[in-house]
Design a binder for these strands. Structure first.
Length: 469
RNA sequence: GCUCCCUUCGUCUAGCGGUAAGGACGCGGCCCUCUCAAGGCUGAAACACGGGUUCGAUUCCCGUAGGGAGCACCA
């Protein structure tokens, strides 16, 4: 069975670049009815943390990237790595190295000074006697000559000379394996058939291939994904521009939009832009992924998010919108049904956060008039019309958009003015600003009592203007 | 420095030897319109450069340039 894995190290949040790697691994496995494994690479004990693990799991769950096996933790498999490392020593394929860090630093400095490729020179290879008082590391005996090649699913044939490789450390002095060793062992033990990862590992693959061979394991297939670059063309990383996936949730993005956006970075299917997860599973294959890096475009993500908001069932948007109301400190009991907000605001919201923020005037008793909008639309000339509209609103028994619209329309007709002449002042009066859904709908959502009291305030604002003129 | 990888509109991409180089985001215009959007139509906008191969190169090969990655007791 085809099996892929996502193997993050829990040394920080789950960022958007990692998510794409996870997505592609998930999609490739799902497409081929395979299995998707989640493995936590926590061998760097100093940098790993429980919070990071939780953030990764939460992010995966939010996105709906379900794993079939795991999460497995490397920190729970140390015995296995140790056994295999000792086995390699017994076969002469690895050896203990007693060099101190300062010796190694010195060696590296000398090599760089001589213009050589820095690397371990193998000075402990033939050492028989242990060095008392020193905990040795275990190094893998890398072939000195020849080359290795990988037929990468996205990069094609890549060849690396063994001369470029040195005897890398596979077990640290404290008995903890290094990444290069643990990855190889785990991928084999867990039956991973397709290793899909970032292309920062492309060069490392040569090392892994040697270890795989020494251990007598089967080679998996490799697919190295191009990096995602920031707007400045520099690789996205936790330190540089990449956001925690959970920040996207906080900013009001939908998981489906984030996934769809990421899928289209380095992959496409004809001219199609919008893909459901089901469609992605049906269409995706890693071998179709591009080899070149892509820049992250926040504008396109925003556009996609709006497309998803527009086409989602309002019920499905509700929990996210309510979260936004809460985080903005808005009280949903103090205003209209949020479902109605979704229906009337979705065309003008790119994120759920935008939507919640722009509906603020629906959930508060008092609003502020925006100075510029008020100055422009609440002028003495409109006072008469606003007053008439206000008086008619008081007498309305049914406060519904259609009825409201007829009232406003008839005021406009009786006074032979354009609908807009009265619509815009009404909008500013009841929302405080110049932008909102159609005025009839807006008035309905604001509510009769609030609309009237806000009109009263607007009228007194105009009177003040007349008085001070 | 050494090694590996990458290179089509500003951005994401289609293209797989012969195309008016297509789509999407963004940008401009028009339409719709009570505002803002959404929607429709439309415009500007690209094959990094130099050599080959070929009747013919965006497409294949080799350089150059630019960008990215790796060379840790990090992953």
């Amino acid at each position: 069975m085809l099996k892929t894995r996502f193997a993050p190290s829990p040394s920080g949040f789950l960022h958007i670049g990692s998510v794409r790697t996870a997505l592609f691994s998930f999609l490739h496995a799902s497409h081929h009815q395979g299995s998707f494994v989640l493995r936590i690479e926590d061998t760097d004990e100093a940098r790993s943390s429980k919070q990071s693990i939780d953030a990764i799991l939460e992010g995966m769950q939010w996105l709906g990237l379900k794993w079939d096996e795991g999460p497995f933790y490397q920190s729970q498999r140390y015995d296995r790595y140790r056994d295999l490392a000792n086995h390699l020593i017994s076969e002469g394929k690895a050896y203990r190295c007693y060099c101190s860090k300062s010796d190694l630093t010195k060696l590296r400095e000398e090599q760089i000074a001589q213009g050589k490729n820095p690397g371990y020179d193998g000075r402990c290879r033939d050492r028989i006697e242990p060095e008392p008082g020193i905990d040795p590391v275990i190094r893998f005996r890398t072939p000195d000559v020849g080359d290795v090649s990988v037929n990468d699913l996205v990069r094609g044939l890549v060849k690396i000379d063994n001369e470029m490789l040195d005897d890398l450390i596979i077990m640290r002095a404290d008995g903890v394996p290094t990444f290069h060793f643990a990855v190889v062992v785990d991928d084999s033990d867990m039956g991973i058939t397709h290793v899909i990862r970032g292309d920062d590992h492309l060069s490392n693959t040569a090392k892994h291939l040697h270890i795989i061979e020494a251990l007598g394991f089967d080679r998996p297939q490799f697919a190295h994904l191009p990096m995602i670059l920031g707007e400045d063309g520099v690789r996205l990383s936790k330190r540089h521009g990449a956001l925690n996936v959970l920040d996207y949730r906080q900013q009001g993005f939908l998981p489906a939009a984030v996934l769809n956006y990421l899928a289209r970075l380095g992959w496409s299917s004809g001219d199609q832009e919008i893909f459901s997860l089901e469609q992605l599973i049906k269409l995706f294959d890693v071998s179709d992924v591009n080899a070149s890096a892509a820049k992250f475009d926040p504008d396109k993500l925003l556009w996609l998010n709006q497309q998803y908001i527009l086409s989602s069932d309002p019920e499905n948007l509700l929990p996210g919108l309510i979260d936004q109301f809460e985080s903005l400190g808005m009280d949903i009991k103090n205003g209209p049904n949020p479902i109605d907000v979704i229906i009337s605001f979705r065309e003008r919201a790119q994120t759920l956060r935008d939507m919640a923020a722009s509906a603020a005037y629906l959930y508060t008793d008092e609003i502020e008039l925006e100075a510029a909008a008020a100055k422009k639309h609440l002028r003495p000339a409109v006072k008469e019309f606003l007053q008439i509209a206000r008086d008619r609103f008081v007498n309305l028994e049914l406060w519904e958009a259609e009825v409201i619209r007829k009232e406003v329309q008839s005021v406009a007709e009786q006074h032979e003015i354009n609908f807009g002449k009265i619509g815009q002042p009404l909008r500013v009066a009841v929302t405080g600003g110049g932008v909102s859904p159609p005025i009839d709908l807006t008035l309905e959502l604001v509510g009769q009592a609030r609309s009237i009291s806000r009109l009263d305030k607007a009228l007194s604002y105009i009177e003040q203007r007349i008085a001070s003129a």
